[in-house]
């Protein structure tokens, strides 16, 4: 048996992360490492905007969540971060390029969700409504009961993808164990 070290326990991000983790977005005088613009608007790839809202168990929009997006399709490695405390309706907004399919899997973007009231962060994935063919054969999507699958498929509305996150309730988003 190797001497395995115990993991440092996770603790909540709390309500006061903005000036440390998303300072530019919230107007604090400290340079952030990253924001919601994962690519330049003029990027030559398939630039997409993804917006959405995080809802708690009572259906209230969460105004102090922080989301991180990560995607790696072997060609592009992109990372973004956005808090839900600045935009109207407590929305988040990311601009990125749509990832390509890897190994025949449906394209997706990883999402990490942090907020007050979460002692451990949550992981989910954003799939895309207009990838019907790959979505239909994707092993991970097919392992999820059909009525819940739609909770992680972004809808295309007005040229943008909309991806709302429900922490609990009838529409509870599928969260992953990584």
């Amino acid at each position: 048996m190797s001497a395995k070290k115990l993991q440092t326990p996770s603790q909540t991000i709390g309500p006061y992360f903005a000036y440390g983790l998303t300072p530019g977005q919230y107007g604090y005088n400290f340079p952030g490492i990253v924001d919601g613009m994962m690519v330049d608007k003029n990027d030559e790839g398939n630039v997409v905007q993804i917006i959405g809202t995080v809802y708690d168990a009572e259906g209230k929009s969460v105004d102090d969540a922080m989301l991180e997006l990560w995607q790696n399709d072997g060609e592009r490695r992109l990372f973004g971060r956005y808090g839900t405390g600045t935009d109207e309706g407590n929305k988040f907004s990311f601009t990125t390029v749509k990832p390509k399919s890897v190994d025949g899997q449906a394209p997706f973007i990883n999402v990490i969700i942090f907020m007050r009231g979460q002692l451990l962060h949550s992981y989910t994935r954003i799939y895309f409504e207009d990838e019907e063919t790959l979505n239909a054969t994707d092993e991970t999507l097919n392992s999820i009961p059909e009525d819940r699958r739609k909770t992680i498929i972004a809808k295309k509305e007005d040229g943008r993808y909309v991806f709302d996150i429900y922490m609990q309730g009838n529409h509870e988003t599928v969260f992953f164990q990584l």
Binding site: I144, Q168, E172, V174, F175, F176, Q177
Partner: peptide
């Protein structure tokens, strides 16, 4: 109470 995922993780 209002923010913890309640279903099994996938």
């Amino acid at each position: 109470l209002l923010r913890a995922p309640s279903r099994a993780l996938v």
